[in-house]
Write a protein that binds this DNA or RNA. Structure first.
Lengths: 142, 142
DNA sequence: ACGAAATGGTCAAGGAGCCTGACCATATCT
DNA sequence: AGATATGGTCAGGCTCCTTGACCATTTCGT
């Protein structure tokens, strides 16, 4: 089915562009999976277990991912205010700057689409995709 | 940007559904990357180098992937009719059956979308994505 | 209130998949 | 014909994810 193939191709291209844009803005050593984690943390932080569920991986894998972004200065572990077992993972200032860079890169890519489809068609695309988007975990790997 | 997030979420969900549908139809031990390889081979076969370019990986990785689908009975290596260095990788009957299963699974997913958006909106989505789809390699990993 | 079970998190070991580097066989260029 | 380029494989290593075990704290059941 051509629609499926086109969708997967566009998604792959988009994630590549976002990644390239983030690197071009000076944030290295990150993978797209980190971006999904950043998005989940940016509101009020997140626990390792929440990140694991959001990314669709095990707690151990999420914990390793957190180790990595902490070591690189994008986030830090704080004691959880309501549960002494848990830790709240929070973005540092550098982490927030990186998240902004990713948003800018994504916006650039969408602007490029507007040049092909026109503004109205892009809005239409956004509405359609919003209706189809699932609420479950994001699966970055296929 | 909400559009980017929705697009990536829908793409992840689609690849998960296709994979589940293929498994449900009795084809195990395959990953989505294999699907892209199958699609490339289904016309008239493909060489390892062509598959590598199509998938955006090294020749060695593509060669390993071919080893795997040959070992599992989905494809076979034949001498290339025009170049004694090359080998033409061709789907077996079982491989073609698997490709059909993937197409059916994809069609099922698209039908589910029609239930949400309506037929006309799905056609519109297909046209828009076809215009945005790149022609370069498909990058299954992000 | 107190022990049992569940939950949040980490450590350790192993596996799957991709990469780099080296190498051989055949094609193509000069 | 010899030099170079191309198709393909072999070997080793790295990264990321998984399973299994374990500790600390919270919640449940009685």
């Amino acid at each position: 089915m051509a629609l499926s193939a086109a969708l997967l191709a566009v998604a792959g291209e988009l994630s590549r562009r976002i990644h390239d844009g983030v690197v071009a803005r000076g944030f290295e050593g990150l993978r797209p999976a980190h971006g999904f984690a950043f998005a989940r943390m940016s509101a009020a932080g997140a626990t390792v277990t929440e990140l694991a569920a959001h990314l669709g991986v095990t707690k151990q894998a999420a914990s390793q991912l957190v180790d990595e972004i902490v070591r690189k200065g994008y986030a830090e572990r704080r004691p959880h205010p309501e549960d002494a077992r848990a830790r709240l993972i929070v973005l540092t200032e550098r982490g927030r700057a990186c998240a902004r860079a990713a948003e800018e890169s994504a916006a650039d890519a969408v602007r490029a689409w507007a040049g092909v489809l026109g503004e109205e068609q892009v809005r239409s695309l956004g509405r359609q995709l919003a209706l189809l988007a699932p609420h479950g975990p994001i699966r970055p790997t296929w």
